[in-house]
Computed example of a mutant assay.
Amino acid sequence: MSALDAVRRRASWSRVTDDAPTREQLLPLVEAAGRVADHSSLRPWRLIELRGDDRLTLGAALAKADGDDKPSTKPMRAPLLLAVVASYRKSDKVPRWEQEAVASGVAHTLSLLLDEAGWGVIWRTGGLTRTKAVAEAHGLKKNEELLGWLYVGGKPDGKQPGRRKPVDADALLGAMPAASTKDDAPAKGDALKRASAPKKKKKKDRASKRGSR
Score class of each variant (00 low, 15 high):
Asp157Phe: 02
Ala135Ser: 15
Arg130Leu: 02
Leu114Thr: 14
Trp123Leu: 04
Ala117Arg: 08
Gly118Leu: 11
Trp149Asp: 10
Tyr151Gly: 02
Gly139Ile: 02
Thr129Arg: 11
Gly127His: 03
Lys141Asn: 09
Lys159Gln: 12
Gln160Ala: 15
Ala137Gln: 11
Ala137Arg: 09
Val152Gly: 01
Ala117Asp: 10
His138Asp: 05
Glu116Ile: 05
Gly153Lys: 14
Leu113Met: 08
Gly120Trp: 00
Gln160Ile: 06
His138Ser: 06
Ala117Tyr: 03
Thr125Gly: 01
Trp119Lys: 12
Ala117Trp: 02
Trp149Gly: 04
Glu116Asn: 13
Ile122Leu: 06
Leu146Glu: 00
Ala137Cys: 04
Arg124Thr: 09
Leu140Met: 04
Gly148Cys: 09
Thr125Asn: 02
Leu146Tyr: 03
Ala137Ile: 01
Leu146Lys: 03
Gly154Pro: 01
Trp119Tyr: 15
Leu146Asn: 04
Val121Phe: 06
Ala117Pro: 00
Lys132Gly: 00
Gly139Lys: 06
Lys142Pro: 05
Thr131Cys: 09
Leu114Pro: 08
Glu145Asn: 08
Leu147Ala: 07
Ile122Arg: 14
Leu113Pro: 00
Thr125Cys: 05
Gly158Glu: 03
Asp115Ile: 00
Trp123Glu: 03
Leu140Thr: 10
Leu150Thr: 11
Glu144Asn: 06
Arg130Ile: 08
Lys142His: 10
Lys142Gly: 14
Thr129Ile: 14
Thr131Leu: 11
Asp157Leu: 05
Val134Ala: 10
Ala137Asp: 02
Ser111Gln: 13
Arg124Gly: 02
Gly139His: 04
Thr131Asp: 12
Val152Ile: 09
Glu145Asp: 10
Trp149Ala: 05
Lys142Val: 07
Glu144Leu: 07
Gly158Val: 05
Arg130Thr: 15
Ala135Phe: 05
Val121Ser: 03
Leu114Val: 12
Gly153Glu: 12
Leu113Ala: 04
Asp115His: 12
Lys142Glu: 14
Ser111Glu: 13
Glu116Trp: 00
Arg124Ser: 07
Lys132Arg: 15
Ser111Thr: 10
Pro156His: 14
Thr131Phe: 08
Lys155Gly: 07
Ile122Pro: 00
Asp157Gln: 11
Leu112Gln: 14
Leu112Asp: 05
Ala135Met: 08
Leu112Val: 14
Gln160Ser: 13
Leu146Pro: 00
Asn143Ile: 07
Arg130Glu: 14
Asn143Gln: 10
Val134Glu: 09
Lys142Ser: 15
Thr131Trp: 11
Leu112Met: 12
Lys155Gln: 15
Glu116Phe: 01
Leu146Met: 03
Glu145Thr: 12
Ser111His: 08
Leu114Glu: 11
Ala117Glu: 09
Val134Met: 09
Glu144Thr: 06
Leu150Glu: 06
Lys155Leu: 04
Leu150Ala: 09
Gly118Cys: 07
Pro161Met: 11
Thr129Phe: 07
Ile122Ala: 07
Gln160Val: 12
Gln160Arg: 14
Gly139Glu: 07
Gly120Ile: 00
Val152Asn: 02
Gly118His: 12
Lys141Trp: 03
Trp119Asp: 06
Gly154Leu: 01
His138Ala: 05
Leu147Ile: 06
Gly127Ala: 07
Gly127Trp: 00
Gly148Gln: 10
Ala133Pro: 02
Val121Ala: 06
